[in-house]
Amino acid sequence: MLDWRWDFTFEIMPRMLWATLNTLMAAGIGYAIAIVLGLVLALAQRTPYRPLTFVVREAVEFIRSTPLVLQIFFVFYVGPQYGVTLSPWVAGMIAIGLHYAAYLSEVYRGGIESVPKGQWEACTALNMSTAQTYFRIIIPQALPLSVAGMGNYLVGIFKDTPMLSVIGVAELMHAANAIGGQHYRYLEPYTIVGVVFLLISLPSAGLIRAFEAWVRRKLGMS
């Protein structure tokens, strides 16, 4: 029945670990894009320009309700059709960054909306500009409220990176597929992928909670 080969496991280990670094890098870069772009999408929905608000709102809904894997294909293949060729990494980072930006914009929106109205009024009474109000008063308070959601999506983006293998980003899943194809052995590579994901995502929930508490303490809000 089950014939797990340790020698094969050790043989492919270096390649899998190397690919793990790529996975972590993909998640990190994608998340960095999502954090910034998500804030832009959230703030764009709070401007008084109705058409902009509407378009951004619908775009966020669209991105959130369609499959990421399809979006990855779309970004990767549509460029060449119009003469713009994107490398798998670039296309992948755009797609996954945009996808999670849409999710994070909802997290930020929730955070911003839970800052009490009185804080906005105090800013008006102190005659602060809109930018000062957001960056000095509202966002610092919305941040700790958003940390839990942001952390969940960090784990989420990490777990979605295997989808990047479909366009040839050399992350874990891609390495496992390649090894499986070369040696006609899928048990070890796919199992290693699963174990790596478990080892990284299991402790993350606790880490996120600890980080959340730390942010609150840092801002003197606990």
Binding site: P116, G118, Q119, E121, A122, A125, G220, M221
Partner: peptide, 18 residues
């Protein structure tokens, strides 16, 4: 409005600042 200041019923101090 720069010549006007206001105090509120619920203070509205900024919680992340001393």
């Amino acid at each position: 409005r720069s010549s006007i200041g206001m105090c509120f019923q619920h203070f509205n101090l900024f919680p992340h600042m001393t």
